[in-house]
Simulated assay, not measured.
Amino acid sequence: MNLEDLGYNNHLETINKDGISGDFEVGRVIAEYKERYTVRTVSGEYPAEITGNLRYTATGREDFPAVGDWVELMVLDPDFAIIHKVLPRHSVIKRQAVSQTGEVQVIAANIDVAFIVQAVDRDFNINRLERYLTLCHSSKVSPVILLTKTDLIPENRLTGLIEEIQQRIENVPVLAVSNETEEGYDLLLEKIEKGKTYCLLGSSGVGKSTLLNHLSGKTIMKTNTISDSTRKGKHTTSHREMFFLDNGGIIIDNPGMREVGIADTGSGLETTFDRIVSYAQTCKFKDCTHIHETGCAVLEALEKGDIDEKAYENYLKLKREKAHFESSVAEKRKKEKQFGKIVKHYKKYYAKK
């Protein structure tokens, strides 16, 4: 396997134009286990840890390696390597860390396309699709909506669900597959190109592991059924891991996510709800909240039926979450700056003694 088979492309050539010194190799993180990693290089796979300096200089979890990252590492022996540097990412999918205000969790890095997976029998929820789309758009990752378990509903019901999605979400491909009959897999495989990196996003129990097994043509992931008592998905995938398909495509499987907190400080939300944003450009007031103002073009379009009411409500909800996250990040940075000043003053004071 060469670097191109691992997904190495012109972007990496540009950021790595100075080359790697003789003591280091370039590799890609293919699995993560709570700050321990598996890195794949041209010469093989190695268990790896990060250097103490990389850990010390990290300002948050976002600075640590993630599955999909390209790294510089030193191989010490066949069973151990040290990661010295994470190369710049061209994309990173992240969400707000659970129960950690102002912190983010990196889901995967250097992704080209994200398959947003939903089961049509129990998991189907367009509001949730819009959450995942916001994650993708803020990360500059192309989304594809993938509906699974289509054999569990009548064909006319599936057609209705696809139409329902397309009425609210424009310009995002929608594919449908059956893990039981494998119907739709030919079209899905056509979407997967050699050397490109894809990831699977979705709740537990929507069929991501089964999907990966079918795409690979072999059983590489354990699968479970839906819990009979809660009707919720069981966590089959326990960690993030990268897999290489026979056609040259690269797929990252992720544990199911029950919480998809918005960590968007860019324009991801605006891209997801571009129809609402386009109306907002003509509001009477620049700081219009689109809730009660006179002359609000969004409310006028809502009243006329030009904007879907559920999409509007979800937009406001995600907009509040984004504002809260941004304020939390700003407050966190303010406290860090204040702490930095205290440390600087402390060092200056004791240097005089």
Rank of each mutant, 00 (worst) to 15 (best):
K337R: 14
V206D: 05
K353S: 13
N16L: 15
G160S: 15
D306G: 00
D274Q: 11
K85M: 11
Y349F: 14
L133I: 08
E326L: 08
L299F: 05
T38C: 08
A81F: 05
T289R: 15
T41K: 02
V29M: 09
Q166R: 13
L302W: 03
E4V: 12
E32S: 15
V71E: 03
S138R: 00
G295A: 08
T159I: 13
A323K: 12
K232M: 13
N9T: 09
G22Y: 09
I250M: 06
V260F: 15
R128E: 01
L269S: 00
E25P: 01
G217N: 06
V71S: 07
Q118S: 15
L188W: 02
G205Q: 02
L245K: 03
E4D: 12
E62M: 05
N156F: 15
I220F: 11
D186P: 01
T148G: 03
S209A: 07
V120W: 02
M74G: 09
A114S: 12
L188Y: 03
L147W: 11
L316E: 00
K196R: 13
S43F: 13
L316C: 04
K304W: 10
V206Q: 02
T272F: 02
Q281H: 13
I162P: 06
H292W: 12
S327Y: 10
Q166A: 03
D308P: 01
C136H: 03
N254E: 09
K34H: 10
P47R: 09
D5L: 09
I93P: 11
E180F: 15
D69T: 02
L161R: 04
L152A: 03
E193G: 01
L316G: 00
S227T: 09
I251K: 05
S142M: 09
T197H: 06
I342N: 11
I262N: 04
N254Q: 06
V120G: 00
A301E: 02
E331L: 15
L269E: 00
K286S: 14
E259A: 07
N53V: 09
V329T: 02
D246K: 14
A81W: 06
N2S: 10
V144Y: 11
N247I: 06
T14Y: 13
R128V: 06
T59D: 05
K337P: 01
T38H: 08
